[in-house]
Simulated scan of single mutants.
Amino acid sequence: MPADLAVETAHLLVVDDDARLRALLQRFLAEQGFRVTGAPDSAAARQALSAMAFDLVVLDVMMPGETGLQLVESLRREGNDVPVLMLTARGGPDDRVAGFEGGADDYLAKPFDPRELALRIRTILRRAAPPPATALPQAPVQLGMRWFDAERSELRGPEGTIRLTGGEAALLAALARRAGDVLSREEIAAALGTPEAGERAVDVQVTRLRRKIEPDPREPRFLHTVRHRGYVLRPGP
């Protein structure tokens, strides 16, 4: 299936305790061509995720009981790497960083234009979609005992496949495409489709990725910080 068609027919899970907003989002996103399922809280979201496969979750942060942030953190611990776009009435830098630290792929502050929500959803889905068949394949990149296959967004090692979130896979793919070149935080944010996220959010994603590719994240061998410039990936055995 062509990537654009796969994006437009994606199945979304919208989780928000505000019944009116949830209904509005479901109707708008359905009009955009998506298949949409709604859930009023984290418990209902868990049930839906266990019963069906979703391409992306639109998740409110502040909900009674288990919050959206707690839910996405739990999903990541369980190895569920479904892309997550978080919605919140608190859109400050610290709140965005907390969302990215928890494993979210993007973050949108309320109130928002529904058209921007749809645009961000499509950006995340395209980022996660397989590349077109006509694209030149990129050779896997060696990171010590592990190999990253950008074509499959897959990181493998002696222990098997290491799960990456959509944001982590996109970050590693962007760095791998320009291995040996220093990428500024602005370039990385643009590659992730989140140019407004800010430098701290990029730093958070880098920290999360280092935990998965570095033998010792405190002494990086592959993903290096270049002071005042950005980050560079230096693959090797």
Rank of each mutant, 00 (worst) to 15 (best):
P140Q: 01
K110L: 04
L175T: 03
T161N: 14
D41I: 01
A197V: 06
L87Q: 04
E214A: 02
H228Q: 11
V226A: 08
R156P: 11
Y231R: 03
G180L: 02
Y231P: 04
P137H: 06
L49F: 06
K110H: 04
A197P: 04
R120E: 02
Q138C: 13
T88V: 08
D105P: 06
V226G: 07
P111S: 09
M1D: 14
I124G: 03
G38H: 03
I124Q: 07
D41W: 09
P114G: 05
L155G: 01
M62D: 15
S184A: 03
V141E: 13
L71T: 00
E101H: 14
H224P: 15
W147G: 15
L223G: 07
L164Q: 03
D181L: 08
G193K: 05
V58Y: 05
P235S: 05
P235C: 01
E196R: 15
A53N: 13
P2C: 07
T9E: 09
P237A: 14
E151G: 05
L71K: 06
V141L: 09
F112L: 07
R200E: 10
L183I: 01
P83Y: 11
D81E: 14
D113A: 11
V97R: 13
A197Y: 04
G102M: 00
P237H: 15
A129S: 10
T165Q: 01
E196I: 11
A19K: 13
S184L: 02
L29A: 00
L25D: 08
L21F: 09
D41L: 01
R27A: 12
D149W: 07
G99N: 09
R221C: 09
I124S: 03
V182T: 10
G99P: 10
L125N: 08
L192E: 00
L233F: 10
D17G: 09
A190V: 11
E151R: 09
L119E: 15
Q205V: 02
Q26M: 06
R127K: 12
E78G: 05
V206D: 08
W147Q: 15
G92H: 10
G38E: 00
G166T: 05
G33F: 10
E159S: 15
Q142P: 15
A43G: 13
L29W: 08
V58R: 10
Q205S: 12
D203W: 06
Q70G: 10
G103K: 04
Q142S: 11
E154Q: 12
L136Y: 14
V36I: 00
A3V: 14
R227H: 09
H228G: 07
G180N: 02
A150L: 02
Y107A: 00
R146H: 13
I121C: 00
A179C: 12
M1L: 12
A51H: 10
P111Q: 08
M63F: 04
L87F: 02
E154H: 12
T225Q: 12
G236E: 12
T207V: 15
R210P: 05
R20H: 11
I162D: 15
